[in-house]
């Protein structure tokens, strides 16, 4: 069953008196459990497409259905509810809240879901254990390395066990070793929890792990291939 379906999506931005077309004619179907990447050079429209799928933006034309909801007709409140309950986000720059501890950063999505304290603690500890950073539970982001911060960011996206995780250039700020560690961990979470991962990236390292690679060029899908992932083991790293 497709959890993401886009039909004829276009996105235009005003640019002076003219309009800049960031996306055009995007027809796409993504099934549950996929580990898919939207790849392409900078300015090809990857992030714009990810924003529309993440209900952070509306398409100018066409329709995007995400987890059964039509993004273009969602109100701000409904879009927030969809993101809160069923989507997880991983950012290039981690975007952890610096004044909060690791525990509190990961706890934030659960607070919005109004879960009780015991349940929150259980889920946060499980998520941190999965990403291998439980020992840093009381640390502040400033006390962590880049790789550790991205692990916390992954834990925050995964803690509520969402149906879909959207990751925008998740390894762009990481060194090679940390990049492979994070990607291996995501792949494992994908297998274990059947969470669908959708990346926007132009990083070759990420591409090695993808099972499906959709190439965007100048806002159009120019290639959509399925392939075997080629993860790099920790020993190789």
């Amino acid at each position: 069953m497709a959890i993401i379906e886009t039909v004829g999506i276009a996105k235009r931005y005003p640019m002076g008196k003219r309009k800049f077309t960031a996306l055009r004619d995007i027809d796409l179907k993504i099934e549950k459990g996929e580990f898919t990447g939207i790849v392409g050079p900078s300015g090809s429209g990857k992030t714009t497409l990810l924003n529309i799928i993440g209900a952070l933006d509306h398409p100018s034309e066409g329709s995007a259905t995400v987890l059964g909801k039509k993004v273009e007709s969602l109100s701000h409140k409904d879009a927030a509810r969809l993101r809160n309950q069923r989507l997880g986000f991983i950012f290039q720059t981690y975007n952890l809240l610096p004044v909060y501890t690791v525990y509190e950063n990961v706890e934030l999505p659960l607070l919005l879901l109004k879960m009780n304290k015991e349940k929150r603690r259980e889920l946060v500890e499980t998520a941190l254990k999965r990403v291998g950073i439980l020992d840093k539970i009381d640390s502040k982001p400033a006390q962590l390395s880049g790789g550790e911060r991205q692990r916390v960011s992954v834990a925050r996206a995964m803690v509520k066990e969402p149906d879909l995780v959207l990751a925008d250039e998740p390894t762009a700020n990481l060194d090679v070793a940390n990049s492979h560690n994070i990607l291996n961990m995501m792949l494992e979470l994908n297998r274990e929890l059947e969470t669908t991962f959708l990346f926007a990236t132009h990083d070759e390292k990420v591409m090695r792990y993808l099972r499906r690679q959709i190439t965007l060029t100048d806002g159009r899908i120019t290639e959509d291939i399925e392939k075997e992932p080629e993860p790099v083991s920790p020993e190789e790293v």
């Binding site: 701000h76 409140k77 509810r81 986000f89 934030l108 999505p109």
Partner: peptide, 15 residues
């Protein structure tokens, strides 16, 4: 901006 962006992305409503 950063904090608010994260909160909105995570699912807190604008209101």
């Amino acid at each position: 901006y950063g904090e608010i962006g994260v909160r909105l992305a995570i699912g807190e409503s604008k209101t």
